[in-house]
Every structure is written in structure tokens, then in C-alpha cells.
Design a protein around this nucleic acid. Structure first.
Lengths: 114, 114
DNA sequence: CAATCATATGCCCATATAGGCATGTGTCAA
DNA sequence: TTGACACATGCCTATATGGGCATATGATTG
């Protein structure tokens, strides 16, 4: 079996860096496809495809305005990520700043196994 | 070009549901491969492969103890995720509770039309 | 209707995947 | 040394991908 589809959920959708950048741009408001493509230095078809994925997982929504299609962020789609990550909150302080301690543990482990 | 490797970063690594479950299990402490495999209903080779990916992106670390290899969570690997997601924090309240607001609006609209 | 601008799709390709299964490697005990 | 146990790797296959490019679809204007 292959990898799960990028459209299967938000986790898979945001695994692609360019799609994350699109979401970041959209934090500041709605944007048409071409602008996004330019800002991110990608072709228009590429942008459209990425936006399709984001739309399918509910991370962005579209709105037709004249010839244009304005894409906007729908942050509710990030909720699963937020919740999953929240389960690890108790490690934030503990693990991020304690590189030293971790190194100590490593040394000790090595001593024990020696 | 194909999709980025699962080992390219934490984002890609946790796109796979089973790998996320492994990390959840490891929150409670170190575990040997076979136990993880059993708990998650997967074969031992599958577990080993997932663990390899997680190790390559720095989400878990291993420690040999006798015949066993104890895998432990390294939450520092989640930092990029945490930080990226943090950029959307201002949307949490706004968008997540939208449903409530929407329901309020509905009620009010109904009252007004009654 | 025709022309034009803004997007979306379709097609081709190379690549990395996850699963299934067999087998290699490493460690300990007798 | 030989087993036995715990784990890692190798190989195979089907599949979905992202990029490049051409082209179809939609909406607007003259």
C-alpha cells in the first residue's frame, strides 16, 4: 500500500511545505490564486493544485469575486493538529530547554551499558 | 517529483496515523518494539520501520537494554510543529467556536422573524 | 458573439511509500 | 557453540505524489 492521500486529513495536507506557506500567507486575509503563486515563486497550476488539496481537507475556502477566486484560511481545519499536539504540552518546557540534561542521561546510559 | 520523504521532517513523519499513535504511547514512558507492535495491532517489522522514521526525524530515541531496545519519546522533535501551529493561535477562539456564534445568530434571526 | 483575463484540469514521469513476508543481526543463556 | 529471543532489513508491489506543460473551463467586457 502506498502513503495515505494528501487529501486524507490535515496532517497529510500540511506535510507539504508549500502548502504550509500558503496557509501562512492566508493568515493575513483572502488572496487570489495568482498572487499566492507569485509570492511563493510557483506556477499558477501548482498553486491551484495545492489549494485544491487544502480545500478538500477544509483548511481553506473559496469565494468567487468576478473573474477571481479568493482563497481564505479556515483555521478550524487545524483543530485536529492542535488537539493532537496539545497532548504533548507537558513536554514543552521539560524537553525543549533541557538539552544538557538529555546529554547527561545519554552519558549515564552509556556508562550503564558499558 | 514525488512526495517528500517521510523522514524529511517531523511534519511528514507524523502524517502517518500509526506513527502518531506510537508517539502517544511513548508519552507514558519507554517501550520495547514488540510491546508497541502488540498494542497497536501491527506486525513487529511494521513497528520497527515506523520507529526508524521517527528516529530519523528526532522524535524518538533508542536505548539498548539487554536483548531489548527501549524507545522513548523525544518531544523536542515536535517543536517545529508547535511553533508553526502557534502562528495560528489567534484563530483558535475565533474559528473553533464559530459554531456557537452561528447558532446564536440563528436563534436571534428566528426571534426577529417571529 | 468574440476576445481576454483568472483558474482549474489533464497528462506524463520519477520517486518514495506502507504492507506482507522472509531473513539477517545482535544479545543472552546453557 | 548452539538455541532462543528481540529486533532490523531486504525485497516486492500498488499507489499517490509534485513538477512541468498544454489546454479546458468560467466569468467579464466590448
Amino acid at each position: 500500500m502506498a502513503r495515505a492521500a494528501t487529501t486524507s486529513d490535515a496532517f497529510n495536507a500540511i506535510a507539504e511545505p508549500q502548502r504550509r506557506e500558503i496557509l501562512v500567507l492566508l493568515r493575513d486575509g483572502e488572496r487570489p490564486v495568482t498572487e499566492l503563486a507569485q509570492d511563493l515563486g510557483m506556477t499558477q497550476p501548482q498553486a491551484s493544485k495545492h489549494l485544491r488539496v487544502l480545500r478538500e481537507v477544509g483548511l481553506v475556502r473559496v469565494r468567487g469575486v468576478g473573474k477571481q477566486r479568493l482563497y481564505g484560511l479556515d483555521a478550524r481545519g487545524l483543530r485536529p493538529l492542535h488537539e493532537w499536539l496539545g497532548g504533548f504540552e507537558r513536554f514543552w518546557g521539560e524537553s525543549f530547554d533541557r538539552l544538557d540534561e538529555y546529554l547527561q542521561e545519554l552519558k549515564q546510559a552509556r556508562r550503564e551499558s558499558a
